[in-house]
Design a protein around this nucleic acid. Structure first.
Lengths: 224, 224
DNA sequence: ACAGTTTCTGACCGATCGGTCAGTTATCGT
DNA sequence: ACGATAACTGACCGATCGGTCAGAAACTGT
């Protein structure tokens, strides 16, 4: 009564919450109502199970990255990236949580190595386009913080808000966090607001300021 | 040639990067130039080693939390908390990284249970004072993102900026991220901007937003 | 030099891990 | 009904884990 895809999903959830090393094949089998041998019948090894669990997310993320890298850096392309990234996070919370939290300890596993290479590729891309420490940290906090947020609320019990509400808030916050950077790159000084408006597209919470940080970032200008 | 404190430091670094489960006592002994038995002579068990490694950070964090909880919620107290929290993160990167990333998988370990209780306590405190999903996510992203930032740059090789620069940027970003929330709590509706000024407290990179650090920098720094 | 204590070590133990294999049960096309 | 194939299982294997223990080695004070 348990398909290979069920096993994949069960394994992913366990790997993400209890860790890859902390999850035994026996445990996965138990959750699936099977024996350990049966799990190994569907997947040749524990590593193969891990690969099946997270490689789709890796490929999707790679596609988003190449799409971003091949396009010029404008307000629109950045906004597109943010929305893509947030949707990616929402769709692959567990996978992202995995190779963010366990990427180092599992670096000898091939599929994790691919994931780590993606993270490095993302980081170096932004490091090359950003000059100051603060700008770079904005990206780290926005991306890492967003990824952390999505699983921590589930890790501890704490009520989980509806998905669309989470999505809207995430896009708003990440956009706002990256606003000074984007504003500088866009060339037009007043653009922090327009970016926020893009992020707010179709949302409802809508209260938060997000409007008045334009005063702050326009005097920034580009000193590099 | 390896004291108990050396072992503690070595274990902490290994636990944080390779995971508690992924780190064997033999590995720690190897790094310390000792035998496995010698490590177990200094610490009764692997759990005792973990406790010695992270419990100081837990107590420090608990003190910060109680200090915040007992004071009224104002612009100043929040600013104090942010500075305290950032300094705490800088001083205890590895410990925070541990019970943020491995808190769930090690929840049956007593010392980790204490750490998790602290995180829940922090989360519930802000959940009770904040009403909207977005406000709560701001805290999660700010705190989780900041914690992630400090270790990810070390996890991958990527150049690490000087500590004071990191500290300044962190305080600025976290404060700015929490600006709308604090502004609303302060009572003056239009205050998003005033908070941004608080965020610039004590900065040196000197670029980023805002001009006036007058309100901010007096309440920072001298509490350690 | 010697006794006492601290520090350290190799050998060993039970448990659990990932993985293999021979064999059993269920499913399905004909 | 029946053979073929897919799905499943328990028994077993080598390796590694955390931890115990008796004893060697090193460092003390006298």
């Amino acid at each position: 009564m348990a398909s290979s895809d069920d096993l994949r999903a069960i394994a992913l959830a366990e790997f993400a919450t209890s860790g890859y090393l902390g999850t035994s094949i026996h445990r996965i089998a138990e959750l699936a109502g099977l024996s350990k041998s049966s799990v190994l019948y569907h997947f040749a090894s524990k590593e193969a199970l891990l690969e099946a669990a997270i490689s789709p997310a890796i490929e999707r993320m790679g596609a988003i990255l190449t799409a971003m890298a091949t396009q010029p850096l404008t307000l629109e392309t950045r906004s597109v990236f943010i929305v893509d990234f947030v949707d990616f996070l929402l769709e692959h919370k567990l996978e992202v949580h995995m190779f963010i939290n366990q990427g180092k300890s599992l670096e000898d596993v091939p599929v994790i190595e691919r994931a780590n290479a993606l993270v490095v590729r993302l980081a170096t891309h932004f490091i090359s386009t950003l000059t100051t420490t603060e700008d770079r940290m904005r990206f780290g906090i926005a991306l890492g913080g967003a990824a952390y947020m999505l699983v921590s609320s589930a890790t501890f019990e704490l009520d989980v808000p509806p998905q669309d509400e989470t999505r809207t808030a995430l896009i708003t916050i990440v956009t706002e966090l990256l606003a000074p950077v984007t504003a500088r790159l866009s060339g037009q000084p007043e653009s922090g607001r327009s970016l926020a408006s893009v992020s707010a597209a179709g949302q409802s919470t809508g209260n938060r300021s997000t409007a008045d940080q334009s005063t702050a970032q326009q005097q920034k200008t580009q000193q590099e």
